[in-house]
């Protein structure tokens, strides 16, 4: 079936956002998004109306992003993954016995999924993702958005498995803290009528 090019153009900001979180390079992102749109137009016969255009487009985008990651040989060195502020995270959260520091104890979020209905929540979440350090973000995004298995992330980025586990844990802990500070403990969630 034929694709509406206006609809295609309307999805561009989301595609750009997605690719940027993985590539963190405006030129590479632009290339990937362009290539995705071209492929979509060339192969529009392959688009069946039983999935949304967006889902179909993102399948192409995923593959183009993976290609770009591979082409760019965006290797993550171990040094890059052990930046100072990241190393301190567990020390901020836990005391020497491995128990929670009083002020770091996670509070209950109730039924957090109701936030999915709020556009403000996605602004906050997107900002939290952008705030992750570049390399941490790449490992995390490969896992959660490209759905790589950890072994494959290690291979792609030449990391040890233990580096990968630590990096993923750090990313999740940072995102959890970011959401807690900027959404669940703040005005946003209260205003959503918890």
């Amino acid at each position: 079936m034929t694709i509406d090019t206006n609809e295609l153009a309307a999805l561009r900001p989301d595609m750009t956002r997605f690719a940027y979180l993985l590539l963190r390079d405006s030129h590479a992102v632009e290339d990937v998004v362009q290539a995705t749109m071209l492929t979509a137009i060339e192969k529009q016969d392959g688009f069946k109306n039983n999935s949304s255009l967006k889902t179909w487009l993102f399948t192409i985008l995923r593959n183009k992003t993976i290609d770009s990651l591979r082409r760019g040989k965006r290797e993550v060195s171990i040094a890059d993954l052990s930046g100072n502020d990241d190393d301190d995270l567990e020390e901020v959260l836990f005391n020497q016995n491995g128990s929670w520091n009083q002020e770091a104890k996670p509070s209950a979020w109730g039924n957090p999924e109701v936030s999915f209905e709020q556009s403000e929540f996605w602004v906050v979440f997107n900002a939290c993702l952008h705030n992750l350090p570049e390399k941490t973000s790449r490992v995390f995004m490969m896992r959660e958005f490209l759905e790589f298995e950890v072994d494959d992330i290690c291979k792609e980025l030449s990391l040890t498995a233990s580096n990968c586990w630590v990096t993923l844990h750090r990313a999740r802990a940072k995102l959890r803290l970011c959401l807690d500070t900027n959404w669940f403990s703040g005005q946003g969630f209260e205003a959503s009528g918890r």
Binding site: S107, P112, L175, D180
Partner: peptide, 11 residues
């Protein structure tokens, strides 16, 4: 820790 676990899976 139960809260932390819920929060990670929410992420």
């Amino acid at each position: 820790c139960a809260n932390a676990r819920q929060q990670m899976s929410f992420v």
